[in-house]
Simulated scan of single mutants.
Amino acid sequence: MFLDWVEKSQFYGKNELAKAAEYTLNRVNGLKAILDDGRIEIDNNPAENAIRPNIIGRKNWHFSVSEAGAKANSICLSIAETAKANRVDFYQ
């Protein structure tokens, strides 16, 4: 098995193979979870794509008139994105 090989192999130094082995071993629990449970997504691209419009506008929101306005904006956007993720027409 790949993980057994990585664990038993001796990689030294700062070379790319040693870095890759360390990266794998540092994330072995997550990798095993993905392999054991097919329902777990291997990446979070759908979640990142869902919040991207909010992140792009973040610089503009730095200039909210008040803290209460910024909080209200974040609540509304949170509700909108949750509705969108659940296929609910937010504007209705």
Score class of each variant (00 low, 15 high):
D4H: 12
S78D: 02
I51C: 02
S64Y: 04
S78T: 15
K59A: 09
W61Y: 12
Y12V: 09
E7P: 00
H62K: 15
D43H: 15
L3A: 10
Y91S: 13
F11C: 09
A47C: 15
N26Y: 00
K71C: 00
D37S: 08
I34F: 05
I55E: 02
G13W: 11
D37V: 04
G38H: 03
D37L: 08
T24I: 15
N86F: 12
K19N: 13
R87H: 15
F63L: 14
D37E: 02
Y12K: 11
G30E: 08
E48H: 00
N49A: 09
T82I: 11
A33F: 03
S78V: 00
F63C: 07
L3N: 09
V65G: 03
I34H: 00
R58G: 03
E7N: 09
I40K: 07
K71Y: 01
N44D: 04
Y12T: 13
Y12W: 02
R87Q: 13
L3K: 07
R58V: 04
S78K: 05
A50H: 02
N26E: 11
A83F: 14
S64N: 09
Y12L: 11
D36S: 15
T82A: 12
A85C: 11
R87L: 11
E16H: 09
A72H: 06
Y91P: 01
E48I: 01
Y23C: 06
E7R: 13
A20I: 14
G69R: 02
G38I: 04
E41L: 13
R27Y: 03
A47E: 10
F2S: 09
E41K: 13
Y12R: 10
K71H: 05
A85G: 03
S74N: 10
S66T: 06
E81K: 08
K84R: 15
Y91G: 00
Q10I: 07
L3I: 08
N49T: 05
F11A: 08
D89V: 10
A80H: 05
A21H: 00
I51L: 10
L35M: 07
G30I: 01
S9F: 04
L35Y: 07
A83P: 01
A68G: 11
S78W: 07
A20M: 12
A33Y: 10
R39C: 11
E7S: 10
N26M: 06
R39P: 04
P53G: 05
I56C: 02
F2T: 09
Y23M: 03
K19H: 02
S78N: 04
Y23H: 03
D37W: 00
A70Q: 11
S74F: 10
A68W: 08
R39W: 05
D89G: 04
N29W: 06
I56T: 08
L3F: 12
N26T: 09
L31D: 01
H62F: 14
I56M: 07
N45P: 02
L17C: 12
S74A: 15
N44T: 09
I79F: 11
L35R: 07
N73P: 08
L17F: 13
G57F: 01
L17Y: 13
S66R: 01
T24F: 05
K84M: 04
I79R: 00
A70D: 06
A70K: 04
V88L: 14
L31V: 12
